[in-house]
Amino acid sequence: MTVRFDVNGRRAEVAVEPRTSLADCLRHHLGLTGTHLACEHGVCGACTVLVDGEAVRSCLMLAVQAEGRSVVTVEGLSNDAALSPLQAAFRRHHALQCGFCTPGMITTAHALLTEEPDADADRIREVLSGNLCRCTGYVGIVEAVLEARAAYRGHKADAAS
């Protein structure tokens, strides 16, 4: 069946099986391989994408459920010219090693800071506790998100629009 939704600001029209997950659809039908699958049972958070601005596990959502919605993946939060402030903070704080959980961390942190640009370390840890990372021990990740808050302040209204 055909499903139509916006992905990273572009219209997508994809023929999928009803059982195809949004994650598989993004990765295999749309070539957006930045979204990673590490558990496929909703625990690890690596596949987190934004659906209408909300952080969602794309392994637990069917592609057909995205009909008419707006999906943003890590590719949609990136550009060629420069790293975003959040990405640059991750690099500066060595908040990634193997990079596999990183797209889910970026999307989750982006959703958090868009809503709560003043989130403190405890709040950041609480929200990120739904995303597993096996390399870093999370210390650098939390430091990076704390630092990136500045870039989100004052943009809340824009992001929500």
Partner: peptide, 12 residues
Amino acid sequence: EDLRFLRGRGIY
């Protein structure tokens, strides 16, 4: 490595 990983451009 970070430049590609952070943009979701790693090739696993």
